[in-house]
Amino acid sequence: MSSGEKRSIQERIEKGKFYFINGKYEYAIKEFEEALKLSPEDPELLYSLGVALEGTNSFEAAREKYLKVLECSPGHKMAREHLDRLLAK
């Protein structure tokens, strides 16, 4: 991955988080999805996308992302917590 791509991912993540904490989940989802195109198996990105999807009550899609996080990073505690919460819904 080039340094330009790395920078682009970082910018997308920051923008995504900005939108997320302001409750603009749809915009956050777009940013995280764009970043994931460059780094499709990044557990932190997948997790952030999962949380943003949950924000819009897209529970099935969020569940898929958390499962993928745990595939890539089985010890990811936050993804496990969110997944357990979703499974209990």
Partner: peptide, 8 residues
């Protein structure tokens, strides 16, 4: 979060 992760 303190680790800069999104949560709600």
């Amino acid at each position: 979060t303190e680790e800069n992760q999104t949560d709600y």
